[in-house]
Amino acid sequence: MDNTVEIRWHGRGGQGAKTAALLFGEAALSLGKFIQAFPEYGPERMGAPVASFNRISTEPIRLHCSITNPGIVIVLDQTLMGKVDVTEGLPATGILIVNTTDSPAEVRAKLKLQGLKVFTVDASGISKATIGRDIPNTPLLGALVKASNLLDFASMLKDTEEKLAIKFKSKPEIVKGNIEAIKRAYNEVKGE
């Protein structure tokens, strides 16, 4: 269990929190990790606050219960903060990553946080600039790798590019935009 990192993603229905967990899970698997990715399920529809989860480990994962004490929390939509207790269960050594134009210090002040490592990145802005739409989950993958050091960034980038190239065979601009988004978030994420 010491070799396992647990992650929680916060978003709104339709924003891609589930997809983010799946994408990160697949990327980690490609780099030799054991993984789980699962959403929280309910009858909620688009717009409702939702969460999804990852377990990333160097050994087979046998746990099949929900994640209550994640080591990392990622917030896809800053408007959730204050409405949803995004740091619930996060230990003092935990990592919080927020999609926002605020600085880590501002987030820390707003949420009155003590301890924790807080990272912020303007994932929405980056995705609008690179992909042309507000899809924060893709750049957040870059931010997560930077903040967590869970995966080797170069390998992760290469693997993602290969996968996207298969998926978007006839649209190389989409592949390029996504890779650029991940790279920018990796470089622009700020933490303290």
């Binding site: 799946l22 899970g25 698997l29 054991f34 990715a37 699962f38 087979p60 994962i61 099949h64």
Partner: peptide, 12 residues
């Protein structure tokens, strides 16, 4: 399989 716990959990 167990609903959601396994059916919707991405696993290796």
């Amino acid at each position: 399989t167990d609903g959601f716990i396994i059916s919707h959990c991405l696993d290796k």
